[in-house]
Deep mutational scan, measured.
Amino acid sequence: TEDARKEAKKIIDNGGSPDEAAKFIKKYGLSEDQARELVKRAL
């Protein structure tokens, strides 16, 4: 979702790792793979 993508970008912009961002956005109901893909797109 757009919200999850924004959250991921915010985490990374604040110095978080892509892994942290992926873990965080899994709470939106995404699978591990979906979360990682979304983080990649957010970069």
Rank of each mutant, 00 (worst) to 15 (best):
F24K: 07
V39P: 00
I25H: 02
L38W: 04
G16C: 15
A4I: 13
D3C: 15
L43G: 04
K10E: 08
D3G: 08
K10H: 09
K10Q: 10
K40C: 15
S31M: 03
K27T: 05
R5H: 10
D3S: 12
E20H: 05
D33R: 08
L43F: 08
L38E: 02
P18Q: 07
F24M: 12
L30E: 00
K26G: 07
A4K: 04
G16E: 03
S31K: 00
A42S: 06
A22G: 03
E20F: 09
G15L: 04
A35R: 00
K9R: 13
K6N: 10
D19A: 11
L30P: 00
P18L: 14
D13P: 03
I11R: 04
P18I: 13
I12V: 05
F24W: 11
S17G: 05
I11P: 02
L43V: 08
K23C: 14
A21E: 03
K10A: 11
E37T: 07
F24R: 09
K6T: 11
D33I: 09
D33A: 12
G29V: 01
I12Q: 03
A4E: 01
E37R: 08
D33K: 10
D3K: 13
E32R: 02
P18K: 05
A4H: 03
L38D: 01
Q34P: 00
K10F: 12
S31G: 05
E37V: 05
I25L: 15
E7V: 12
D19F: 11
D3Q: 14
R36F: 09
R41S: 12
K6I: 12
E20W: 10
L38T: 03
F24N: 05
K26I: 14
K9A: 07
R41T: 10
P18A: 12
A22D: 02
K9T: 05
E2A: 11
A35G: 01
K23P: 01
K23Q: 14
K27M: 08
Y28Q: 00
N14L: 10
K27I: 08
K40M: 14
Y28P: 00
D19I: 07
A35Q: 01
D19E: 14
E2T: 09
K27E: 04
P18M: 12
E32H: 05
G29F: 05
D13L: 12
A8K: 01
S31R: 00
I12N: 02
K40I: 13
K10G: 05
A8I: 14
E37D: 08
E37H: 06
G15Q: 04
A22M: 15
G16T: 03
K40T: 11
S31P: 04
E20M: 09
D33W: 10
P18C: 15
G16D: 04
R36D: 04
L30D: 00
A35K: 00
R36V: 09
E20K: 03
E2P: 09
N14E: 10
A8T: 03
T1S: 11
T1R: 11
A22R: 07
A8H: 02
Y28K: 00
A8L: 12
T1E: 12
E7M: 15
A21P: 01
I11G: 01
A22K: 08
I12L: 15
A21W: 15
N14Y: 06
N14G: 12
K40H: 14
R36L: 10
K23M: 13
D19Q: 10
P18D: 07
A42H: 05
T1W: 15
K10P: 01
E2L: 11
R36E: 06
E37I: 07
R5D: 05
N14R: 13
G15Y: 04
K40S: 11
R36H: 08
Q34I: 07
R41C: 15
K9H: 08
K40Q: 13
N14K: 09
E2N: 09
A35I: 13
K9N: 04
A35Y: 09
L38I: 15
G15S: 03
F24G: 07
D33G: 06
K9G: 04
R36T: 07
R5N: 05
S31T: 13
P18Y: 09
K27S: 06
L38V: 13
D13F: 11
V39N: 01
N14P: 02
I25R: 05
K23A: 14
A42P: 01
G16H: 05
I11W: 07
A35N: 01
A42M: 15
D33M: 09
F24V: 10
I25N: 01
G16Y: 08
A4P: 08
E32L: 12
E2H: 10
I25K: 03
G29W: 01
N14D: 10
K6M: 12
Y28T: 00
T1N: 12
G16R: 06
T1C: 15
S31W: 01
P18S: 06
K27D: 01
A22F: 13
R36Q: 09
K6F: 10
D33L: 09
K10M: 10
P18H: 06
D13N: 09
I12R: 02
K9V: 07
V39M: 06
K6W: 11
F24T: 08
T1Q: 12
L43D: 01
I11S: 02
A42C: 13
G15R: 03
Y28W: 07
K10I: 07
R36K: 10
P18W: 11
G29E: 01
A8Q: 02
A42L: 15
D13H: 08
S31H: 02
A21V: 13
R5Q: 12
D3A: 14
L43P: 01
K27N: 05
I11V: 06
G29T: 01
A22T: 10
G29A: 02
E7A: 14
N14I: 06
R36M: 12
I12Y: 04
A42V: 15
K40D: 11
L30I: 07
K23L: 12
A4F: 08
R36C: 13
D3Y: 13
E20P: 03
G16L: 08
A42I: 15
L38Q: 02
E37P: 00
Q34H: 03
D13T: 07
G29K: 04
Y28F: 13
I25T: 01
K9C: 14
E7S: 08
A8R: 03
R36P: 01
E32C: 09
I12T: 03
D3W: 15
Y28G: 00
D33E: 14
R41E: 13
L43S: 04
D13E: 13
A21D: 04
S17P: 05
D33V: 10
G15H: 06
S17H: 07
A8W: 11
K40A: 13
V39H: 02
K10N: 08
R36W: 15
A35E: 01
A4G: 03
L30M: 06
L38S: 00
E20V: 05
T1I: 15
E7W: 14
R41V: 09
A21Q: 02
E32D: 13
A22L: 15
R36Y: 12
E7D: 13
L38M: 08
K23W: 12
A4M: 12
T1K: 10
F24S: 10
I11C: 13
R36S: 06
Y28H: 01
I25S: 02
Y28A: 00
K9I: 12
K9Y: 07
S31D: 10
G16P: 02
F24E: 10
G29P: 00
Q34V: 09
I25Q: 02
L30T: 00
E32I: 11
K6L: 13
A22S: 06
T1H: 14
L38N: 00
E20S: 05
Y28I: 00
G15M: 04
D19S: 10
K40R: 13
R41Q: 14
R41M: 14
D13W: 11
V39L: 11
A21G: 01
S31Q: 02
K6V: 10
E37K: 07
Q34S: 05
A22P: 00
Q34W: 05
D13A: 13
K23G: 09
K26Y: 08
Q34M: 08
V39T: 02
A35T: 04
S17C: 09
E7C: 15
Y28V: 00
D33S: 11
K23V: 09
T1L: 15
Y28E: 01
K9L: 14
I11H: 02
V39Q: 01
L30W: 02
P18R: 06
K27V: 06
D3F: 14
D3L: 15
P18G: 06
I11A: 04
K26N: 04
G29Q: 02
K9F: 09
T1V: 14
K27A: 06
I11T: 02
A4T: 03
E7Y: 10
E2D: 11
E7H: 08
A4N: 02
E2W: 09
I25W: 08
K26M: 15
G16I: 05
G15V: 02
R41N: 10
D3V: 14
E37N: 07
A42G: 04
T1G: 09
D19R: 09
K26S: 11
E32K: 02
S17Y: 04
R41A: 13
S17W: 07
N14M: 12
A8G: 05
R5A: 13
E37L: 10
S31V: 01
A42Q: 07
A21S: 03
D13M: 13
V39D: 01
K6Y: 09
D33Y: 10
G15W: 04
K40N: 12
G16M: 10
